[in-house]
Amino acid sequence: MPQTAGVAGKFFDALGESGVNVLAIAQGRNQRNISAVVSAADSDRALQALHAAFLTIVPIAVAVIGAGEIAEAFLSSIGMQAKELAEVVGSDIRIIAVCDPVDRSGCSWQLGF
């Protein structure tokens, strides 16, 4: 933290934005750690907020071959859970291709991953 401005602010902003109340704080003498005490009820939310603030989101590219009911259900499931997957798992799922190999007329590509 001594070499990077704003780390403590980012830490407490993440907790505050997620609605976590900090009961106590401490900073190590060497300024290399921050400790915060939160209620047990807020602990999962606090951990998720801090992971989201400091850990890198991993992009995942998905190509779907087939445009039937299974592909439709899969894409719908990803769409409904994308935000939660980003927040909880730290992944950014991007659909880069959907192709129906049966008639070869329904291919759609999205490049720029």
Rank of each mutant, 00 (worst) to 15 (best):
L55T: 08
A73C: 09
L50W: 04
L50T: 10
I60M: 05
M80P: 03
P59Y: 09
A46S: 02
T56Y: 06
A61L: 03
L75I: 14
E69S: 11
E87H: 08
A40G: 04
F54H: 02
D42L: 01
L55H: 12
V64N: 04
G68K: 11
H51G: 10
E87W: 03
Q48N: 10
L47P: 00
T56M: 12
G68E: 11
D44F: 00
A40S: 07
I65H: 13
A67P: 10
H51W: 08
I60V: 13
Q48T: 12
E87Q: 07
S39W: 04
L85W: 10
A86V: 06
S43N: 07
A82M: 10
A86M: 11
K83Q: 12
P59S: 10
I60D: 00
T56W: 05
A67H: 13
L85G: 05
I78G: 03
D44V: 13
I78N: 02
A63R: 15
A49N: 00
E72C: 11
I60N: 01
Q81D: 11
D42K: 01
L75N: 07
R45Q: 13
L47G: 07
V38Q: 02
G79C: 06
V64T: 07
E84W: 11
I60P: 00
A46V: 05
E69H: 11
L85S: 08
K83G: 07
A40N: 06
A53G: 01
Q81I: 08
A40C: 03
A46M: 03
Q48F: 05
R45P: 03
V64F: 05
A73H: 09
V62M: 11
A71F: 03
G79R: 02
F54T: 04
A61E: 04
A49S: 05
K83D: 12
A49W: 01
A86P: 00
S39F: 03
